[in-house]
């Protein structure tokens, strides 16, 4: 579905991403982890077309990313960036509506908005000013907006959700809510690519884990195999221990440095 072939990206002389090969599938939640500055967000920007690779190509649904026009692509993949600022006093309802495509019926709009408000625990927030919300509430509104965008696309076509640290501003309850909601959205037509910092959340929600270190993919495997103490310790530079119980993984580390 989404394929990166030998993708590299350089900023000036600095190689930020080197020879990455990656395949994203629908019905899968792919979590990307790695230390700060490893190239996770750059990878997301390359896959979503914000940045153009200096070498290699990215394909989505049989076509190179460059061959898609912006409007067509918007119905097929939605992106939540790491930080999004909003100017002007929009209400929550208006911000979420920005995700809606042109030309869908009023009834469909209402149904979609009602649904995402419920999914992201935003009932009763519709008429509040976005600027007056807390950081976590703002994040949930943006999530509702990007999910809204995908719900407007053609139902049978494959779609992808790209989320850059979607739970970084959220309390534990909402971290669980959001990631569970993303899991519930997965289907044979929908896949998700999520950057996370919390390794235990990655262990709890990922189908597949991609570990990025110094601009390269060092591991790309199903969660249970990708999250192993040895790789994590090397990549993060901290001694990590992975406890296993069937399919479950729990990562612990020494907090005293």
């Amino acid at each position: 579905m989404f394929h990166a072939f030998d993708v590299s990206f350089a900023r000036g002389r600095r190689q930020v991403i080197a020879d990455m090969n990656l395949e994203l599938r629908t019905d899968e939640l792919t979590v990307v982890i790695g230390p700060n500055g490893a190239g996770k967000s750059t990878l997301l920007k390359l896959l979503t077309g914000v940045l153009k690779p200096s070498a290699g190509t990215i394909w989505f649904d049989g076509r190179s990313l460059q061959q898609w026009n912006a409007r067509e692509l918007a119905g097929r993949r939605a992106v939540l960036s790491q930080s999004t600022s909003l100017v002007f006093p929009f209400t929550v309802h208006e911000v979420i509506s920005l995700g809606l495509a042109e030309g869908i019926s009023v009834q469909d709009k209402r149904t979609i908005i009602h649904e995402v408000l419920h999914v992201f625990d935003l009932n009763g927030f519709e008429h509040r000013l976005f600027q007056e919300l807390s950081g976590g509430e703002k994040q949930r509104v943006h999530l509702a907006r990007v999910v809204c965008q995908l719900k407007c696309g053609e139902a049978e076509k494959p779609k992808f959700l790209f989320l850059d640290e979607p739970v970084s501003n959220l309390d534990i309850k909402h971290q669980i809510n959001v990631l569970s909601a993303v899991r519930k959205l997965l289907s044979p037509q929908l896949g998700a690519f999520v950057i996370l910092h919390d390794l235990n959340l990655a262990a709890a929600y990922a189908d597949r884990v991609v570990i990025v270190h110094e601009g390269r993919i060092v591991s790309n495997d199903v969660m249970a195999r990708a999250l192993n103490g040895k790789t994590l310790s090397v990549v993060f530079g901290v001694d990590m221990h992975v406890s296993k119980a069937g399919m479950w993984r729990r990562i612990s580390y020494n907090t005293r440095g």
Binding site: A70, S81, T84
Partner: peptide, 16 residues
């Protein structure tokens, strides 16, 4: 309206 969220976001939402 979409540009109010920033250029990258507006682009993601299908705005040229």
């Amino acid at each position: 309206d979409r540009l109010a969220l920033g250029e990258a976001e507006a682009g993601h939402m299908g705005i040229n």
